[in-house]
C-alpha cells in the first residue's frame, strides 16, 4: 500500500496550486494515505488550504522560524525526518520542487523520478526525456522510498472540497545555517493571471523586436484576460522577465488557449506547450515549425495582425454586452 507525503509549495500565505496537482497524481494510483507537509514560520493559513484538498488524509504543520523562506538545504533534513512513515515523497516539478526533492532523495540514499506525467501504478511511472522527444517508462523498487517530482501540467488540481485533520509536529533535524535567503525580486505580473495556471496565455518571441513592442503582447493578453509568456529568445533579449519563459527550461504549461506571436517553434519551446488545448500561431514565415503543431495558423506580420485582433476582440466584447 502506498503512503504518500507531499511537500507543500507556498509563499507563507497561499498554497501554490502545484501542491493540489501532486495530490491528483497520488490519487491516480489510489494511495492509502496522502499527507501534506507544510513547512513555514507560521503555517496556519497554508495548512488550512492544504487540509481542504479533496483526497488528502492529513496535514502536518512544521512551524519553525527557519522555515520562513523556502530553502532546500533547510527543508530537506526536516522532510527526511518525516519520511520514515511513508513509501513515497512527492513534490511539484516547479523550481521549488526541482531544487528541494533531489536533496531529499540523496539524504535518504535513493534516486529520484523527475517529472512524472503518468503513473501506471505506485511504482511504475512515465516521464519525458530529450525535451519531450521521448517518453520513458521506469519502475522503482518497492523496498525503499520513492522520491519524485510531479509534472504539474499533466494533472488537474484537486478540488477544495475536503477537510483533513491538521496536526502540528516539531521535527528532530539539524537545520543548517550555511544558506541565507536575501530577497525575491519580481517585476512581472501587472495584475495579470499567473502563467502556470492561466486558462489563456499569449506569448511573444524574438519577432516582437523590442521591449517597447512587447507591449502589444500585453495588450492582446489583457483583451483576452490571458497571462503573458515569452520564448527564451525574447527573455534573453530583455523583452520579458525570466519568470515568463515557456519551454523545456522555463515553464511547462497547459492552458486552454495558447497564442504564440513571433515565435518560430523550436523543440525546446514546443515541449512547454504540448498539453495546451488550442494552439494559435501568428508568424510572418509560413514555414515556421510552430505551424506544424498549431491548431490555427495565421501567416501575417504581427504588427498588423495583433492590433486587428485586439480590435476585433474589443468589438466582440462590445457586441456581447
Amino acid at each position: 500500500m502506498a503512503r504518500v507525503l507531499i511537500v507543500a509549495e507556498h509563499d507563507g500565505r497561499t498554497l501554490n496550486s502545484s501542491t493540489a496537482r501532486c495530490v491528483s497524481c497520488a490519487a491516480s494510483f489510489e494511495a492509502s494515505a496522502i499527507d501534506i507537509a507544510v513547512l513555514a514560520a507560521d503555517g496556519a493559513a497554508v495548512a488550512a488550504q492544504a487540509a481542504a484538498l479533496e483526497g488528502v488524509t492529513g496535514v502536518i504543520r512544521v512551524d519553525h522560524p527557519a522555515n520562513e523562506f523556502p530553502l532546500a538545504a533547510v527543508a530537506a533534513p526536516q522532510i527526511c525526518a518525516l519520511a520514515a512513515d511513508y513509501t513515497h515523497v512527492f513534490g511539484p516539478s516547479t523550481t521549488f520542487g526541482k531544487d528541494l526533492m533531489p536533496r531529499i532523495a540523496a539524504l535518504l540514499g535513493v534516486g529520484q523520478v523527475s517529472d512524472i506525467m503518468h503513473a501506471e501504478s505506485a511504482w511504475r511511472f512515465q516521464r519525458p526525456i530529450y525535451a519531450g522527444n521521448a517518453i520513458l517508462t521506469v519502475e522503482t523498487p518497492d523496498d525503499r522510498p520513492v522520491v519524485a517530482t510531479v509534472r504539474t501540467a499533466s494533472y488537474q488540481a484537486a478540488e477544495s472540497t475536503g477537510s483533513a485533520p491538521i496536526s502540528e509536529r516539531a521535527v528532530e533535524a539539524e537545520i543548517p545555517t550555511h544558506t541565507r535567503y536575501v530577497e525575491l525580486r519580481s517585476d512581472s505580473g501587472g495584475g495579470r493571471p499567473d502563467l502556470q495556471t492561466a486558462s489563456r496565455v499569449v506569448s511573444g518571441g524574438r519577432g516582437v523586436g523590442s521591449m517597447e513592442n512587447f507591449e502589444i503582447i500585453e495588450r492582446l493578453a489583457d483583451a483576452l484576460g490571458a497571462a503573458v509568456g515569452a520564448s527564451r529568445a525574447a527573455v534573453d533579449a530583455g523583452y520579458a522577465g525570466n519568470d515568463l519563459q515557456v519551454g523545456q527550461t522555463g515553464k511547462i504549461i497547459a492552458p486552454d488557449l495558447y497564442i504564440a506571436v513571433g515565435i518560430s517553434g523550436a523543440i525546446q519551446h514546443l515541449t512547454g506547450i504540448k498539453d495546451a488545448g488550442v494552439i494559435v500561431a501568428i508568424n510572418k514565415d509560413e514555414d515556421a515549425p510552430l505551424f506544424e503543431v498549431a491548431d490555427i495558423g495565421l501567416v501575417a506580420d504581427l504588427f498588423t495582425a495583433v492590433p486587428e485582433l485586439i480590435e476585433a476582440l474589443g468589438e466582440q466584447a462590445g457586441g456581447n454586452s
Partner: peptide, 23 residues
Amino acid sequence: QFRVLGFETPPERPSGEKVRDVA
C-alpha cells in the same frame, strides 16, 4: 535503482488549419 521498461514516441499533435486573416 530504476528499471527502464521502454521508450515511446509521444503522440504527435496533428497540424491544424491555416486561416487567411484576423476575421
